[in-house]
Design a protein around this nucleic acid. Structure first.
Lengths: 212, 212
DNA sequence: TCCAAGATAGACAGATCGTTCTATCTTGTC
DNA sequence: GACAAGATAGAACGATCTGTCTATCTTGGA
């Protein structure tokens, strides 16, 4: 697998996304270079190879940090996994916020759909990080699952808002359908091929939007 | 989790499925009771808890077989995983074949959709075994992924055939959309709740079918 | 220069992992 | 009864797992 398509905290690409959000990110507390290298490496490995398949030894070797550095910044592996997922969540939230800030309400849905279609070919080529993590963490009370659930709640409600501001007649039902299709696009892009999935996703989503 | 909903080789329930197929199954070569107990236990654990999270020790302890028995029947863990997936595949194929044999062509699609909607609440409550396995096995050349791919090819083509025999105008496009929605139903049933997902799935699928 | 924060290089511990193997027992068939 | 197939009860192996810890070095700011 080509490292150029590795997932990390580089977010999804949405058409016409404004890069001014990146300037805002510079105001965040700055973590050490080693910590960032660690988290980036772990995130890549977790997304590309799965979470339980990748051990601490592998992560620190590839990140070129020591064990002590890892445990200094993260109390345990599960917290490292949580940080990976929160990174993915933040990146997508930033992308959606940027798109909403720069695209008129009547165009935002198309932009989101295009963004999803683009994402499955450019970044999330190994499925959805949240769905994949949920496959490996069956315990609904775990922190991983809490993050997954919160992410999905946010995404659904973002779609509802977009549908509402676009004047859609049933934003809740429309969002429910689009969440289904988003999930399916990520799974299908990984397992059935990007091009065919992209076409089916767009066509089906348009059908759904046109039906209301 | 209630063991009554644990996945295994008991297939999906499809409405009006004919139980005469169960009689046919009795003609198959009979495996030993220990082997069947082992495979059933492993399948339950793999589905409920994930594949890499469940070790050989756990499986043999819960199946009440020994290590030697396990390795006598399966050359390695990966072959046990393959057998689990093939069991899931066979069960679904049997269910679809039974439905096709007993339900008229103009009703088969509704039956399949109802079957999927029923399945996510009764059996596959922890997502799709194939999607979950693919999350844990990123190597496209592995046997696990070969089985997943073959399963998905079969399912897609079954939908195409059903759409064609029901007189649908574009069976390929329709099947592509329904595959998306089937994937999404299994993911959504696990992560977002069965009732809401079921309703959205049926409604969206009906929209898709009515659009052509 | 001093000091704190954070990095490095490991060693260590107990547990688990998947696989291989030996010895013995059990069961069904001839 | 003899025998083969398949079961049992482990032991052993080398590797890996996650987390804990010590000693020392490095860097930036006061």
């Amino acid at each position: 697998m080509d490292t150029a398509v590795a997932a990390g905290n580089d977010g999804s690409d949405f058409p016409q996304a404004d890069s001014s959000a990146m300037a805002g990110a510079a105001a965040w507390p700055k973590h050490s270079e080693a910590r960032e290298r660690l988290l980036q490496t772990a995130s890549d490995l977790f997304y590309r190879e799965g979470i339980h398949s990748v051990g601490i030894d592998r992560i620190i070797a590839e990140a070129r940090v020591t064990r002590a550095t890892l445990y200094r910044h993260f109390p345990g592996k599960e917290q490292l996994v949580a940080a990976y997922l929160l990174g993915e969540d933040t990146a997508l939230r930033d992308s959606i916020a940027a798109a909403v800030a720069s695209i008129p309400p009547d165009k935002i849905l198309d932009a989101i759909l295009e963004g999803i279609a683009d994402d499955i070919g450019r970044h999330h080529t190994r499925g959805c990080p949240f769905i994949n993590a949920a496959a490996e963490f069956p315990d609904p009370t775990s922190e991983v699952r809490r993050i997954v659930d919160e992410h999905r709640r946010w995404f659904r409600s973002s779609l509802e808002q977009a549908l509402e501001s676009a004047g859609h007649s049933s934003p809740k039902a429309g969002a429910a359908s689009l969440v289904l299709l988003r999930d399916a696009a990520l799974v299908g892009g990984y397992l059935d091929g990007v091009e065919a999935t992209r076409a089916a996703f767009i066509r089906t989503a348009k059908t759904v939007l046109a039906a209301d």
